[in-house]
Nucleic acid binder design. Sequence first.
DNA 1: GTCTATAAGCAGATAGAC
DNA 2: GTCTATCTGCTTATAGAC
Lengths: 211, 211
Amino acid sequence: MVRGMSTTTSARDRLVDAAQDLFAAQGVGPTSPRAVLAASGVGQGSLYHHFPTKHDLAVAAVGATVDEALTRALRTLGGDSPAVERLVAYLERPRDALAGCKIGRLTSDQAVMDDDGLHDVVTAYFVRLLGTLTQVLRETGLPDDAARDRAHAALAIVQGGYVLARATRDPDALAAAVRGFVGLLTQTVPAPTVPAPTVPTPNLPTQEENQ
Amino acid sequence: MVRGMSTTTSARDRLVDAAQDLFAAQGVGPTSPRAVLAASGVGQGSLYHHFPTKHDLAVAAVGATVDEALTRALRTLGGDSPAVERLVAYLERPRDALAGCKIGRLTSDQAVMDDDGLHDVVTAYFVRLLGTLTQVLRETGLPDDAARDRAHAALAIVQGGYVLARATRDPDALAAAVRGFVGLLTQTVPAPTVPAPTVPTPNLPTQEENQ
DNA sequence: GTCTATAAGCAGATAGAC
DNA sequence: GTCTATCTGCTTATAGAC
């Protein structure tokens, strides 16, 4: 019950840590409680003392992963710089493309999709992220509907980029998708004649490279 | 070895059909040979006669799914209409968003990623599709590198859109991502005055579902 | 070629000692 | 709270009759 006891690494914390790692590596379904047990170093009974079922363990571990990811994302998207710049910074953030998105991958995990409590945690992550992205895009002067659509596109680029990278075993596939999207996003008017751009072209600051 | 015997539905064909359906619904890993057996209506021994291991069954079923999806995709992308129009037609094709991409989902399927033979089938699908999309985008006058990046972006939109739809349980999430991307893709000069759309919205012919 | 019967092993979960 | 020992059911696969 007592969460966040920082004094020592409780069996509970070790279990959640191990579960997060294994879930990220191989998904929830294929990860057995026994494997979490072995990785954490605690005994069989301890697991079932803290987490009566695999569901309980999964909710705790996936919840922790979502919290961490959301914190990082919102920090990137919430700075002082111009909105487009923050969006591009989010898109271009270094990512372990071949590993896939720890959370996005769960949408293909039958054990997660079949479990309402677990699914809700995943849903909350994406709803929150889409809301924030929409907000950022509204700052660029886009109407509400267009901002929402473009937010979906931006997040789809990241999630789809992960899929492409894993499918082709090419870590650059995610980076390529991001480049293609950012190219469109920051494009000046094709300008055969008229100059005025839709999106105020930002001076692309030298961003961190994609891994 | 004799494939496509159209005279009668062999036990082999029924097994492959059942496997394709179950793999699409719940993935390869979570689908047991016994479940395929039950769905196909054949006996235990028949399965292991035609497919000595689950791997063999999976290669046959996933291979068939890839062939079908590739055929549909290449038909959409290979018409006579202008390149951008064909690309948009591909992006806007009706899809069962909540079901996810039958092939893209396999990139999160541990049973697939751990099996080189199976993974290769998935890789081939995406490599082929990316090549074709790149070709189409080159027709629009884009330089090679930019065409390749934009092709990655386009395919990522579809794959990521599926992820968003499943994550949020919102079938419109995929459509929103496509709208956001097509909006950028076909954006005319900001047009404070002129309304003319670049791409004449094609009359979506009622398409088959999925990729 | 197709069937029924069955083996070996791992899954999720429980019992109960310390 | 943590441990070891154990149960049931399902998994992949094999054996061998028809």
